[in-house]
Design a protein around this nucleic acid. Structure first.
Lengths: 184, 184
DNA sequence: CTATTGCGGATATAAAATATCCATGATAAA
DNA sequence: TTTATCATGGATATTTTATATCCGCAATAG
């Protein structure tokens, strides 16, 4: 028995949980002072997620050029560039991959009727329409900067939550002795 | 060694293959005459997909009110309303589910520091931003009507492919004896 | 009555996401 | 120099999801 439209199907197009953790980590890293870092373990504790798995995503973000990493006892992660120049799209693409959600399997030419390949030079219209929609999705993510997320948090969130977050960063951030190479 | 941005990660946010088959089926059903139907087996053959699995999606589309189904030897599927009033969003939501791709796990309050629930009344800004982007995605899918897909196919696709598709529909469609209830 | 079709449930298989572990190299501090 | 801490990368296990198949049932045209 179907009660409402949400019973039609369970889930479907889903974004991995790593995206949520990654964005939260990036937002938290936007709050460290100067060239300080936060360890992956600290951030995993802050959000109650699996440390070893979060490290994978942080590693991916580093390879993608969103984060910077430093080894050693004072090591950890920090933003690779100012929060104003990091968009949610940068993070989502890094963690989830750049491939579109809709992958055209060209099933239009998988039928029993065999037509020469020349009959399918024009792209599938369904694929075009789906990619167009995804382009709109990515455009919307591209305008959302990490700095906006942080500003919104500091302005709108409960003061207790803001204070707790700042305290956590202040307690766990690791200042660098010599000013290691950092953006700008 | 990373050669290009596509090596960052394999895949991520993915749309099931059922979506592609479902849209193709709906587009094909837009081509039947009057109140005729196409059997699920015929459409599975047309696109070279698993019949039993496709039936599941067609069934879901029927429950969602996108398609209509008739049992019996002359039975099968047909559109539940004109192609002008069926959008790609209708199909995607029916097949993939209406839940958003980004599900906020509220990991902001899963940390070691326990704040009262009252500190998290305001929605998570990250969740808001992600849902906003998905809203843009759905809006773009909502304006893409099935009739546009069909028209684009007939106008732009190779004449041989159009002819083959029409021939397939003409050969497999099942006309109804008495005009069964159908949208006007 | 018979053959065909959609429907629904149960179940199996394949693939992907999630999570853990360990060896390694780099680095700061003692 | 030694030690402890941290990121890195590979290998692997676990869990979840998507995909696929099968069977009994109800409906219906001939």
């Amino acid at each position: 028995m179907i009660n409402n439209i949400y019973d039609w199907k369970g889930d479907g197009m889903k974004l991995g949980e790593g995206v949520e953790a990654s964005i939260h980590c990036a937002a938290m890293l936007a709050g460290v002072e100067g060239d300080a870092t936060l360890s992956g373990a600290a951030m995993a504790e802050a959000f109650g997620v699996s440390p070893s798995y979060l490290l994978k995503h942080l590693n991916t973000l580093t390879s993608a050029g969103v984060l910077e990493s430093l080894p050693g006892p004072a090591g950890g992660y920090r933003l690779a560039r100012p929060a104003e120049r990091i968009s949610l799209l940068d993070i989502v693409l890094a963690v989830e991959g750049a491939q579109p959600a809709f992958r055209c399997g060209e099933i239009r030419q998988r039928g029993p009727v065999k037509l020469p390949a020349s009959a399918y030079m024009k792209p599938c219209g369904i694929n075009v329409a789906m990619l167009k929609a995804e382009k709109a999705y990515r455009a919307a993510l591209a305008v959302e900067k990490l700095s906006d997320i942080v500003a919104g948090f500091q302005n709108d969130a409960d003061p207790r939550a803001v204070a707790a977050s700042c305290a956590f960063v202040a307690r766990h951030q690791r200042l660098q002795k010599s000013s290691s190479p950092r953006y700008k």
